[in-house]
């Protein structure tokens, strides 16, 4: 059961095909004093190192950065998984990056980011899976659900490609299935920590 008064520690968002415009919308409407870190794992071209973070920053109400390995995670900041690295969350609330083998044809892989976040934040995590063209993220969402984190899946009817959301729906019954606007409303009503 979703509890709006729960003291969350972080939000993780995963997406692939079509997710960039949804993430841009979310970040352009998120309240500037949003109290949590937002950790983004989006499938991206591995040889294009720059451009994405700059584009997101143009519209975002909160600063977007690509973390370096071992950077500490702080509230009110958006972190974008760097190109060609997996991104993990450690127990000490820091990032670790890796060049290990691709997972679900992806590096960064959403499953890796989500699973490690589930272990680090347990029930104080919100996991959101958006539109995308492969099954990456489904197992990660299952891990988040297993640790009693809050799970939100973008309504497949609103997805540009619904493979990712439907794969997650096959593995879990999420706390919420929401349209992009409803995801924004949900995030904006979260209480300050």
């Amino acid at each position: 059961m979703l509890r709006n008064d729960k003291r969350y520690k972080a939000v993780v968002i995963g997406g692939s095909a079509g997710s960039f415009s949804i993430v841009t919308r979310i970040l352009s409407k998120i309240r500037p004093d949003f109290p949590l870190p937002i950790i983004l794992c989006l499938h991206r071209l591995k040889h294009v190192r720059s451009g994405l973070v700059e584009s997101l920053n143009l519209k975002s109400n909160i600063e977007v950065v690509e973390p370096f390995d071992k950077d500490r995670i702080v509230p009110n900041k958006v972190y974008l998984a760097p190109s060609n690295y997996h991104m993990f969350i450690e127990f000490d609330n820091s990032f670790s990056l890796s060049t290990e083998i691709v997972l679900n044809h992806s590096r960064p892989a959403i499953d890796h980011t989500f699973s490690s976040a589930a272990y680090a934040y347990r029930d104080k995590l919100i996991g959101i899976i958006l539109t995308g063209a492969n099954k990456d993220g489904a197992k990660g969402m299952k891990e988040i659900a297993g640790k009693k984190g809050t799970t939100i899946i973008q309504d497949p009817a609103t997805c540009e490609v619904d493979t990712m959301t439907k794969s997650a729906l096959r593995l879990i019954t999420p706390d919420k299935v929401l349209s992009p606007e409803e995801i924004i409303d949900f995030l904006n009503q979260l209480p300050n920590v």
């Binding site: 993990f88 969350i89 450690e90 127990f91 670790s96 890796s98 290990e100 490690s116």
Partner: peptide, 8 residues
Amino acid sequence: YGYSFFKR
């Protein structure tokens, strides 16, 4: 080793 790396 980093925790998650060692575990993996």
